[in-house]
Simulated assay, not measured.
Amino acid sequence: MNEALLLITERLENRQSLQALMPKRVWDAALDERIAELPLALSTAPQADRPALIALKAGLHLLNESLGASHAYAQEIEDDATGCYWHGIMHRMEGDFSNANYWFRMAGAHPAMQRLQDRAADWVRNGTVLSDVPEGAIRDGLAEIARRTRWNASAFTGLVQLQESGRSAEDARGALEYVQHLELAELFAHTWQAAKHALG
């Protein structure tokens, strides 16, 4: 595995703050340059491996809250479920909620969603999150996650939209950021496995 790639992922995994629901700037500009320069041999990779490698770049940039760079890569793989999922999260993070939901529909029942649903439901059921969130639509939405058996990306987008509209208490932001963190972690784990296969 590429040493530069391992150092980048280590830096992202060790960050102390969670990704913002709607980031205002790139988390680490120098890291963004390193991601852009990653030698993944996209031009010489077999056609079947290209989507996994492009999705890896889209995911790394999004974990670094670099929305524009992530978007550029996601647009290259719009017929790939993983690319569509990264594309949807990017649009949600920029506040284009209807476009986010379109890409979530295009991603379909992505393999990362089941593990995400299990983890998010477990966290809501077994944590103190609901008692920390004021009564209202976001608290109800989080409770619904614990009852579902399948991840509903559009429903989560609705919660983020409500939070960002200013019509909900700021006390809910941390809970939503943590669910988003779980989502990013599960999608990146899936992307990483596919890229490792592509990289040999």
Rank of each mutant, 00 (worst) to 15 (best):
R167P: 00
A58F: 00
A169P: 08
G88E: 07
R173Q: 13
Y85V: 04
E13G: 06
R105L: 06
A169K: 12
H197P: 02
E3W: 02
K57D: 01
R147H: 10
Y85H: 14
Q163T: 04
R147V: 07
G95D: 08
A58R: 10
K196R: 15
L21R: 06
T82C: 13
G166M: 09
S17K: 12
I8E: 07
W123G: 01
R173W: 06
A155L: 05
I138C: 01
L5V: 03
A198C: 02
T9E: 15
I89V: 12
A194W: 01
A189S: 11
L62M: 09
I89T: 06
R125E: 12
A4S: 12
D140Y: 02
A45P: 08
G166N: 09
C84W: 04
H61T: 07
R105N: 09
D118F: 06
L21K: 05
D140P: 01
L21S: 00
N64H: 02
G141K: 09
H71G: 05
E94N: 04
P23F: 00
G108P: 09
L187T: 14
Q47E: 15
W192F: 11
S66G: 08
Q163D: 10
A175C: 07
R119Y: 03
T44W: 09
Q75G: 13
E186C: 11
W27S: 13
H190M: 12
R167Y: 11
A45C: 10
P111Y: 04
R147G: 02
P134T: 07
L187H: 14
L159C: 00
A109N: 14
E186Y: 03
A143R: 13
D79Q: 15
A189K: 11
F104S: 00
A198K: 09
P111H: 07
S43R: 14
G83V: 04
I77E: 07
A146T: 07
D28V: 00
N152Q: 14
A52H: 10
A189Q: 12
Y73V: 05
M106W: 01
L53V: 02
M90R: 12
P39M: 08
R119C: 03
S165Y: 07
R119T: 08
A55S: 15
W27M: 14
D140W: 03
T9C: 01
A72E: 15
M106S: 09
I8T: 08
L60K: 06
R50K: 15
V179Y: 01
G141Y: 02
P23A: 01
L142W: 03
Q161C: 04
G108D: 13
K57S: 06
I145Y: 04
H61P: 04
Y178D: 08
G136A: 06
E33M: 11
Y73M: 14
D79W: 05
R92G: 00
Q47M: 13
A29S: 12
L53I: 05
K24R: 15
E177W: 04
H110Y: 09
R119W: 04
G136Q: 13
A48F: 03
A198Q: 09
L31T: 06
L38G: 00
R148E: 14
S43Q: 15
F104P: 00
D132A: 11
T191I: 03
S168M: 10
G200Y: 03
L63M: 11
L182T: 04
V133K: 09
E135H: 15
G83S: 08
